[in-house]
Protein backbone atom coordinates (compact mmCIF):
# COMPACT_ATOMS: atom_id res chain seq x y z
CA UNK A 1 0.00 0.00 0.00
CA UNK A 2 2.63 2.54 1.08
CA UNK A 3 4.31 2.65 -2.32
CA UNK A 4 1.28 4.34 -3.82
CA UNK A 5 1.29 7.22 -1.37
CA UNK A 6 3.79 9.97 -0.58
CA UNK A 7 5.75 9.41 2.61
CA UNK A 8 3.29 10.51 5.29
CA UNK A 9 5.46 13.12 6.95
CA UNK A 10 6.09 13.51 10.64
CA UNK A 11 3.62 13.47 13.45
CA UNK A 12 3.19 16.80 15.17
CA UNK A 13 4.73 16.31 18.60
CA UNK A 14 6.40 18.04 21.50
CA UNK A 15 8.34 16.30 24.22
CA UNK A 16 10.74 17.59 26.85
CA UNK A 17 12.97 16.20 29.54
CA UNK A 18 15.29 17.70 32.13
CA UNK A 19 18.85 16.42 32.38
CA UNK A 20 21.33 17.17 35.13
CA UNK A 21 24.05 19.47 33.81
CA UNK A 22 26.69 16.74 33.77
CA UNK A 23 28.53 15.08 30.87
CA UNK A 24 27.43 11.66 32.17
CA UNK A 25 23.92 12.54 30.95
CA UNK A 26 24.90 12.49 27.26
CA UNK A 27 23.94 8.87 26.64
CA UNK A 28 20.56 9.43 28.30
CA UNK A 29 20.03 12.55 26.18
CA UNK A 30 20.81 10.69 22.95
CA UNK A 31 18.48 7.84 23.96
CA UNK A 32 15.67 10.30 24.75
CA UNK A 33 16.11 11.98 21.37
CA UNK A 34 16.28 8.71 19.48
CA UNK A 35 13.02 7.57 21.03
CA UNK A 36 11.33 10.93 20.40
CA UNK A 37 12.42 10.93 16.76
CA UNK A 38 10.98 7.43 16.37
CA UNK A 39 7.72 8.52 17.96
CA UNK A 40 7.24 11.47 15.64
CA UNK A 41 8.24 9.29 12.66
CA UNK A 42 11.04 11.55 11.53
CA UNK A 43 12.92 10.14 8.53
CA UNK A 44 15.82 7.89 9.59
CA UNK A 45 18.41 10.00 7.84
CA UNK A 46 17.99 12.82 10.38
CA UNK A 47 18.54 10.71 13.48
CA UNK A 48 22.31 10.87 13.65
CA UNK A 49 22.65 14.57 12.89
CA UNK A 50 20.02 15.45 15.51
CA UNK A 51 21.80 13.33 18.13
CA UNK A 52 25.16 14.79 17.18
CA UNK A 53 23.92 18.39 17.36
CA UNK A 54 22.28 17.72 20.74
CA UNK A 55 25.39 15.96 22.04
CA UNK A 56 27.69 18.83 21.08
CA UNK A 57 25.40 21.60 22.39
CA UNK A 58 24.70 19.81 25.67
CA UNK A 59 28.42 19.10 26.17
CA UNK A 60 29.16 22.76 25.63
CA UNK A 61 26.44 23.97 27.98
CA UNK A 62 27.56 21.79 30.86
CA UNK A 63 31.17 22.67 30.31
CA UNK A 64 30.86 26.45 30.22
CA UNK A 65 27.58 27.70 31.64
CA UNK A 66 28.20 25.87 34.88
CA UNK A 67 31.97 26.07 34.97
CA UNK A 68 34.27 23.08 34.82
CA UNK A 69 33.06 21.66 38.12
CA UNK A 70 29.81 19.74 37.58
CA UNK A 71 27.04 21.24 39.73
CA UNK A 72 25.59 19.19 42.57
CA UNK A 73 22.21 20.79 43.18
CA UNK A 74 19.06 19.34 41.63
CA UNK A 75 18.13 22.76 40.27
CA UNK A 76 21.04 22.71 37.86
CA UNK A 77 19.27 21.07 34.99
CA UNK A 78 19.17 21.56 31.27
CA UNK A 79 15.70 21.17 29.81
CA UNK A 80 15.78 19.69 26.32
CA UNK A 81 12.65 19.92 24.18
CA UNK A 82 12.05 18.36 20.79
CA UNK A 83 9.22 19.70 18.63
CA UNK A 84 8.24 18.07 15.35
CA UNK A 85 5.85 19.25 12.67
CA UNK A 86 5.41 21.73 9.80
CA UNK A 87 8.33 20.20 7.95
CA UNK A 88 10.84 20.82 10.69
CA UNK A 89 12.44 19.45 13.83
CA UNK A 90 13.22 21.92 16.57
CA UNK A 91 15.52 21.26 19.52
CA UNK A 92 15.46 23.67 22.39
CA UNK A 93 17.93 23.80 25.28
CA UNK A 94 17.08 25.83 28.33
CA UNK A 95 19.26 26.26 31.42
CA UNK A 96 19.71 28.64 34.34
CA UNK A 97 23.50 28.75 34.19
CA UNK A 98 25.65 31.84 33.83
CA UNK A 99 24.82 33.85 30.70
CA UNK A 100 26.46 31.89 27.94
CA UNK A 101 25.96 32.06 24.20
CA UNK A 102 27.80 29.13 22.60
CA UNK A 103 27.44 30.78 19.21
CA UNK A 104 29.90 33.53 20.05
CA UNK A 105 32.65 31.10 20.92
CA UNK A 106 35.81 31.29 18.82
CA UNK A 107 35.55 29.33 15.57
CA UNK A 108 37.72 26.25 15.22
CA UNK A 109 40.94 26.09 13.27
CA UNK A 110 40.14 24.20 10.10
CA UNK A 111 43.11 25.47 8.17
CA UNK A 112 46.03 23.96 10.03
CA UNK A 113 46.88 20.34 9.66
CA UNK A 114 47.66 18.10 12.57
CA UNK A 115 49.30 20.92 14.51
CA UNK A 116 45.99 22.77 14.99
CA UNK A 117 44.48 23.77 18.36
CA UNK A 118 41.51 21.49 18.97
CA UNK A 119 38.90 23.90 20.44
CA UNK A 120 35.59 25.05 18.92
CA UNK A 121 34.80 21.87 16.99
CA UNK A 122 31.68 20.90 18.92
CA UNK A 123 29.69 24.07 18.28
CA UNK A 124 30.98 24.17 14.71
CA UNK A 125 29.63 20.65 14.09
CA UNK A 126 26.25 21.52 15.62
CA UNK A 127 25.94 24.62 13.43
CA UNK A 128 27.08 22.74 10.34
CA UNK A 129 24.48 19.98 10.57
CA UNK A 130 21.52 22.19 11.55
CA UNK A 131 19.74 24.76 9.35
CA UNK A 132 19.12 27.44 11.96
CA UNK A 133 20.73 28.08 15.33
CA UNK A 134 19.48 30.88 17.65
CA UNK A 135 20.37 32.03 21.14
CA UNK A 136 18.48 34.26 23.52
CA UNK A 137 18.67 35.10 27.20
CA UNK A 138 15.17 35.07 28.72
CA UNK A 139 14.30 35.59 32.38
CA UNK A 140 17.61 34.38 33.78
CA UNK A 141 17.80 31.46 31.36
CA UNK A 142 19.95 30.66 28.37
CA UNK A 143 17.76 29.47 25.50
CA UNK A 144 19.36 27.83 22.50
CA UNK A 145 17.18 26.74 19.59
CA UNK A 146 18.30 24.49 16.74
CA UNK A 147 16.13 23.90 13.68
CA UNK A 148 16.42 21.22 11.02
CA UNK A 149 14.17 21.42 7.96
CA UNK A 150 12.87 18.02 7.07
CA UNK A 151 12.17 16.89 3.51
CA UNK A 152 9.82 14.05 2.82
CA UNK A 153 11.94 10.90 2.71
Amino acid sequence: MSRFFAFPGMKRMETARAFRANPDQINGLCAFLSEALHDCEAPEKYFTVMELAADEIFSNIVKYAYGDVPPKSAGDAVVVELSAGDGLLELRFEDRGAPFNPLTAAPPDLVSGVEREIGGLGIFIARSVMDEVRYSREGGRNVLTLVKFVERA
Partner: peptide, 19 residues
Protein backbone atom coordinates in the same frame (compact mmCIF):
# COMPACT_ATOMS: atom_id res chain seq x y z
CA UNK B 1 28.29 4.17 14.25
CA UNK B 2 28.86 7.61 15.67
CA UNK B 3 31.62 10.10 16.44
CA UNK B 4 31.39 13.45 18.23
CA UNK B 5 34.01 16.16 18.76
CA UNK B 6 35.29 14.30 21.84
CA UNK B 7 36.13 11.40 19.54
CA UNK B 8 37.78 13.69 17.02
CA UNK B 9 39.96 15.06 19.80
CA UNK B 10 41.11 11.54 20.66
CA UNK B 11 41.86 10.75 17.02
CA UNK B 12 43.93 13.92 16.76
CA UNK B 13 45.91 13.02 19.89
CA UNK B 14 46.53 9.49 18.62
CA UNK B 15 47.56 10.82 15.24
CA UNK B 16 50.06 13.20 16.81
CA UNK B 17 51.48 10.47 19.02
CA UNK B 18 51.91 8.09 16.09
CA UNK B 19 53.43 10.75 13.84
Amino acid sequence: EYISSAGLRTLLLLHRKMS
